[in-house]
């Protein structure tokens, strides 16, 4: 049985590479921290939040956007790994991976587990820094958030992987930023609660409610307070399965994932 050693090796490789790329790690942390410490500080006065689950008291805006920023870290990581594949920087190692004598879906899943592991390390570092600034969660929440973070990481990683198999040229990547990352992030509950969105536009609210990123963020939000959000879990699972299927189809050898590059 070589499935598990292969999975372990793939995660191990990601971790080793991660250790060697401290700049990337720091850069990935700066983005959410700027949002948390600058943007949120400026916005807290403008935005009144009422008590909605999972919160039991009034919360500051900073507290509200923490789960969204956890999602942001994972969203950017997912797109980053997709970018490195499109860029060809990682295409070589992808070929090496895909010629291993294992089922392709397992190799792709293992690759996603590897990048998710790195994302989760970043998220916990972010949460620790936020806690140092007084924006903390119940202690148990840090434990119960882990499965939610794994699922969210897999979902966004799978989306990135699927995109990388369809985008053949780098020029198109700006399009990914404009048409995937920004809408996904801004049309979600990451920065503002959905009910707040509904006050200004019913349509925008409905789009946000359909956005899988919203559900991933809500799953993390509830998990951070050791609470369970069934519908969010359901939607996130569904989206993960769909993106994963799309990625596996995108990397199907009969489609020729590296066609343009042959």
């Amino acid at each position: 049985m070589i499935w598990l050693p292969a999975l372990r090796a793939i995660i191990w490789r990601e971790a080793l590479r991660f250790v060697h790329q401290r700049e990337r790690f720091i850069a990935a942390l700066v983005r959410p921290l700027v949002w948390l410490l600058v943007f949120a500080a400026g916005f807290r006065a403008a935005l009144g939040l009422s008590i909605t689950p999972p919160y039991q008291t009034y919360i500051t805006y900073e507290t509200y956007i923490v789960p969204g920023l956890c999602g942001m870290i994972m969203l950017f990581n997912g797109m980053q790994s997709s970018l490195s594949l499109v860029y060809d920087r990682e295409m070589g190692s992808m070929k090496l991976l895909l010629t291993a004598p294992l089922p392709r879906w397992w190799l792709l899943f293992a690759k996603l587990m590897g990048s998710t592991t790195i994302s989760i390390l970043q998220v916990y570092t972010f949460l620790a820094i936020a806690a140092a600034f007084g924006i903390d969660m119940p202690l148990m929440g840090y434990v119960t958030a882990l499965p939610a973070l794994i699922l969210a990481g897999l979902m966004l990683g799978a989306l990135g992987l699927a995109l990388s198999s369809f985008i053949k040229q780098l020029e198109n990547f700006a399009g990914v930023m404009n048409f995937v990352i920004f809408p996904m992030f801004f049309l979600s509950s990451a920065l503002y609660p959905l009910w707040k969105m509904a006050e200004s536009s019913r349509l925008l609210h409905d789009i946000c409610a359909a956005n899988p990123f919203t559900h991933a963020v809500e799953l993390i939000r509830f998990a951070l307070y050791a609470e369970f959000n069934g519908p969010a879990l359901g939607w996130t699972l569904l989206a993960t399965t769909a993106f994963m299927a799309l990625a596996i189809w995108g990397y199907d050898p009969a489609r020729g994932m590296t066609r343009k590059r042959a």
Binding site: M1, A6, A9, L96, A100, L102
Partner: peptide, 11 residues
């Protein structure tokens, strides 16, 4: 090389 070996079930 260790990484590659593991992909082929050698550890």
């Amino acid at each position: 090389l260790t990484y590659f070996a593991a992909l082929h079930g050698i550890a």
